[in-house]
Amino acid sequence: MKVVFEEIIAGDVDAVRERVAKDARVVGAVAGAAPKKYAAQSPLQVAYRHGEFEIAALLLTHGADPNYIEHPDREPWAMPVLHHAIKAAVSRSRWLRPTWREEEPWQLRNTADRADAAHAALLVLLEAGADVHALDSYGNSSLGRAALDARDVLPRYRHNDPDWVDPKPLNPELVEDLTRVFRALKARGADPHRSERDLGASLLEFYGAEPVARFLDA
């Protein structure tokens, strides 16, 4: 079964389609111990990890488990499929990166097409039955996953210096992209008031002073 993972990572949609047509059981394959970063993961997880959304949709059509997680224990870290899809949607949002040029200090990291494709793939997974209440092996919820990833692309906040303002602006494209990710999760029951196991508080309580709070509380 190792070859199907190689085809997914290579983005070879036709090869995966042909393989699934010959034996639909490959959608339930489990990656071997090497390489370690994919150990015990499903083809669907690997497809979302690599942004191969057409392959992900193909796998779901043929019965891939939208709620698969390699193990529920704390070590090593494991995430359900939905959390991989959330990471993909947030990382492909239109966030700003520095150019180090005075005349144009910031530029968009991603295009609208790239952001749209990742968001559409997230919706496909949710519509296939992915559970927004599924936790990773550290107890993080799907909304908690979205908050953690959003903090990486949003302007920073310093809790030890709340008067400090990050020179990175909050651009409207990023607001649009993140809003729809958080909205999709909350529309299906994700609750920003729910206590997160490792935070000892709700997401709104823990991140209330940070830029991500506007998306949690919208």
Rank of each mutant, 00 (worst) to 15 (best):
P167K: 11
T179I: 03
R180F: 00
R197H: 12
K87A: 05
W106K: 01
D136Q: 13
E210T: 05
S91Y: 11
E173A: 02
R188N: 07
A85W: 11
D113T: 02
S91V: 08
S141V: 05
P76Y: 02
G200P: 11
D113H: 04
P192V: 14
R94M: 00
L185F: 11
P66C: 08
I86Q: 07
H119M: 02
L170V: 03
A115Q: 04
H133N: 08
A85M: 05
R101M: 11
A201K: 14
D198A: 09
N140C: 08
L126C: 10
G63M: 12
R109W: 03
N110M: 05
L204I: 12
F182R: 10
W95G: 04
A201E: 15
A121W: 11
V181A: 00
H193A: 13
A190N: 11
R194P: 01
R109A: 04
G144N: 14
L170F: 08
V124L: 15
A147F: 06
W106V: 02
G144P: 07
L125R: 09
D116N: 06
W100T: 05
V165F: 06
L125G: 06
P72R: 05
S137A: 07
Y68V: 05
V124Q: 15
D166K: 04
R183D: 12
D177A: 00
D65R: 13
D152M: 14
H119V: 00
D65Q: 13
Y138P: 08
L174T: 00
N160Y: 10
Y157D: 04
A85Q: 04
G129C: 06
L122E: 15
L123D: 06
Q107D: 01
L170W: 04
R188C: 14
N67A: 06
A78T: 04
L126D: 08
A150V: 11
P66I: 07
R151P: 08
A134Y: 07
L82Q: 02
R94V: 00
V90R: 03
K168Y: 03
P76L: 04
S142V: 04
S141G: 10
A112L: 00
G63Y: 12
D163Q: 09
K168S: 01
L174P: 03
G139K: 11
L143W: 14
N67I: 02
R197V: 15
H84W: 13
A130Y: 07
W164D: 12
V132N: 11
A150D: 12
A147K: 13
H71R: 05
R145V: 14
R180T: 05
V165P: 13
D131Q: 01
P169D: 02
T111C: 05
R188W: 06
D136Y: 14
V90H: 02
E102A: 14
L125K: 07
E104T: 06
A88Q: 15
A146S: 14
V153S: 04
L203C: 15
A117F: 13
D177W: 03
D113K: 03
R101L: 15
I69K: 05
K186F: 08
P105F: 08
A112P: 01
L135V: 06
Y68M: 10
E70Q: 14
M79H: 09
